[in-house]
Design a protein around this nucleic acid. Structure first.
Lengths: 134, 134
DNA sequence: CCGCATCCTGAGCGATACTG
DNA sequence: CAGTATCGCTCAGGATGCGG
C-alpha cells in the first residue's frame, strides 16, 4: 500500500454524497438559496416590508428593475406563497402586492444577512485588496 | 391636477432609490447575497465546517462540482477572506483549505436559512401546486 | 495532486414594442 | 395601470485536455 492510499483511508472523508446534508434535500436548499441570491427577489420583498404596494410603485421603489424582471420576480414569489396579489376592479385598475407571513419570516432571515454584509464589508474589501495585491 | 398625480403624492412612495436601503450600499448587499445564492460557495463552506480538507477531498465531498468550479469557488472565497489555503511542500503535494472565523460567521447565518428551507419546503411545495393548478 | 486554459452551450436578463 | 411578447446579448458553468 502506498502513502497516498493509506492517507486517503486515514482521513476517512465521509463517503456519502455531501458530507453535511443528505443528497435528497440538496435541491430544496439550492432552491431557497437561489431565491435569496437572485438579483431582485429580496429587494422586492424588502420593499414590501412596511405595507402593500402597487405594481408601479414597486417599479419605482426598486431602482433599476425592468418591467419584465419585476413581473417575473413577482410571479415566482407569488408561486412560492411569499406574497399575495390582489386586483381591485376599478378604473383605473389597481393591483396590490403584499407580504405573506411566510415571506416575512424569510425577510427577517435575509435581513440578518444584510446586517452581516454591513458589519463585514470593510473587512472583505481589505481582504480583497490584499489578495489582489499579490 | 389629475387623479393619478394626486394619488402618487398621497401614497408618498419614498422617492429615493430604494425605499429600504441607501443606493450606495446596494452593491455590497448584492455581493453578499450573490455569494450565498451561488451554486457552490455555501456547499463548500458547509463542507469545511468540521475541519480543513484537501482539494481532492472537497471535490469528492461536494457532489457534482467540477474541477473548474471548485477552483473558481475556492479562489473567490479565499479572496474574500472566508477561507485559507495552505500548501505543504511534500511529495505528493498537499493543499488544505480551512474556514476563517469570518467564514464561520457567514456559515452560521446560512445554516439558519437552510433550516428555514427545511421547515417550510413542504408549505412551499403545496403553494406551488396550488398556483400551478390554476 | 493540484490547478489553469480553452471551447461551447444555455439560462438570465435588459431593451423595446405591443395589449386589455 | 398593469402587464405580455420578442429579440439579442452576456456570462455562468460543464467538458475536456494540458502543465507544475
Amino acid at each position: 500500500m502506498d502513502t497516498a492510499t493509506r492517507r486517503r483511508e486515514a482521513v476517512a472523508v465521509p463517503a456519502g454524497p455531501c458530507s453535511r446534508w443528505p443528497a435528497e434535500s440538496l435541491p430544496i436548499i439550492r432552491d431557497v438559496l437561489e431565491r435569496v441570491g437572485d438579483k431582485w427577489s429580496m429587494l422586492v420583498i424588502g420593499t414590501l416590508r412596511d405595507g402593500p404596494l402597487r405594481y408601479t410603485d414597486l417599479q419605482h421603489a426598486v431602482p433599476g428593475i425592468s418591467q419584465r424582471m419585476l413581473t417575473l420576480t413577482l410571479r415566482q414569489l407569488r408561486r412560492d406563497g411569499l406574497l399575495t396579489r390582489t386586483a381591485y376592479a376599478e378604473v383605473p385598475p389597481r393591483v396590490e402586492y403584499a407580504l405573506t407571513p411566510l415571506g416575512t419570516t424569510l425577510l427577517d432571515l435575509t435581513l440578518s444577512l444584510i446586517d452581516w454584509a454591513g458589519a463585514h464589508h470593510q473587512e472583505i474589501r481589505d481582504n480583497r485588496a490584499d489578495f489582489d495585491a499579490q
